[in-house]
Nucleic acid binder design. Sequence first.
RNA 1: GGCGGCAUAGCCAAGUGGUAAGGCAAGGGUCUGCAAAACCUUCACCCCCAGUUCAAAUCUGGGUGCCGCCUCCA
Length: 482
Amino acid sequence: MPIQVFNTLTGKKEEFVPLEAGKVKLYACGPTVYDSSHLGHARMAIVWDVIQRYLRFSGLQVTFVRNITDIDDKIINRSKELKIRPDQLARHYLYEFWADMYALNVAPPDIEPRATEYLQQMILMAEDLVKKGKAYEAEGDVYFDVSGCADYGKLGKKNIEDLKSGAREQVRSQNELKEVKRNPVDFALWKSAPETETGWQSPWGFGRPGWHLECSSMIKSVLGETIDIHGGGEDLVFPHHENEKAQSESLHDKPLAKYWLHNSFVNVSEEKMSKSLGNFRTIADLLRDYSADTVRLFILQTHYRNPIDFSPESMQAAKQALMRLVRAALFAETEENGSGFYPSKHYSFDVKAAEKYKGDKTLSEFHNEFVAAMDNDFNTAVAISHLFGLADKISASKNDAERKLWAKALKDYAGVLGFTLADTRKEVDKNSTEQVLSLLLQLRQDARANKDFKTSDLIRNELAKAGINVMDTAEGPTWEKA
RNA sequence: GGCGGCAUAGCCAAGUGGUAAGGCAAGGGUCUGCAAAACCUUCACCCCCAGUUCAAAUCUGGGUGCCGCCUCCA
């Protein structure tokens, strides 16, 4: 069974056929690093992480590119507020993003281009578009001429006439603001800026690139003129991806991407979680309460194209559910985390590793069900239901060898979805540690009060062995790490 | 206003023509000094109306409710 993917461009599920047999060029739009990442970004990252992991598991040679937008108006505005340079701000949040990704067990992309590294390519692309008559200069700005693009609106299912006239207040105000545009729907490839601000020299003077241009340029530079899959959050469909597509295809006269895939959002109380609404919880904040696996399970239990409503109850449900998988995986009796299909590095799955399970009837059936679910537009919810099915069989089995083999398989297949199934139940936080020590010191005080020095000394000596020094002071007993 | 999507058990959520995956919660049971955990087990005719079909949660039309995009956004 071939892999089926839902293509936003056609609105249908299609058979996935790579441009070049056995290879996949995959590009997903990454974050703009101007603030902390929230659960919505975690979903984007996890969904694309799983897609690229699964494509590799399927035996395809994947080049996964995820970009970083490290220069744009939001970054500049925020940096002005904070009175630091835009590049400092971007670097700060990029580091934070990386830390979040690492904590979430999101595998690093093969290539992670940053917009600021591709200025020359962007300028070149804008120049080429002007030369080809697809874009025009106006007072130091360069605009893409939408009227010269027959397909415009196809991806976002928009009608140019509606966009021009419709009820778009923004279009009107933009129109009044920017008389230089020939058409209100034309979008900027290059925007002039005062030399006192962040910017670059260009054939049209000092300025900055339009947002959409970076992805077009980076895709071209890193992957080529046509790629297999272009993805991102569904809010990027229009205008971001529509405009990328218009630019690239006008210049190259060939498709930018064969398949366009978009993930849905995380809502809070049925309202979109977003930075502008201020209703988000950061990833770091979330990871204080829930493990990376829990967050991942919460996200992957819903199909990537459906919205998820965040609630503490749902997170708690995911946490409970995860414990069943973790418990079953313990029978594998190995410290390795669920990455048996990763022989050494993230970048190459050992597809043949799956072969070792083929001889077992239960695992062979499980494999077929798992693959059928994932082949069907990455239906992680169904794939996970089969993980639970396998977990049940593991718990029910009385045969040690069989149980161990199944548990290893459970870890490996869970690893394809990016789960570690690490047993975190014994990881005690600082607060609990303090309470436990406080209790021990209290018991010791009670023993001393009863002149039971045998017990009190036992507690002190054993704590010393455990790396805790107990000290009796004038204010009472206290402790510190030895 | 235009475009797109969604409505499935107490909650979350798969399922795109053949008679409802999975998870959480809840009830029952095993285990247990008590409790917890763990394990076993029970639990739905799919928003409303009409239609197509031998057969519909799944297709068509209408209605109601909710959400997203059209402006920065994953």
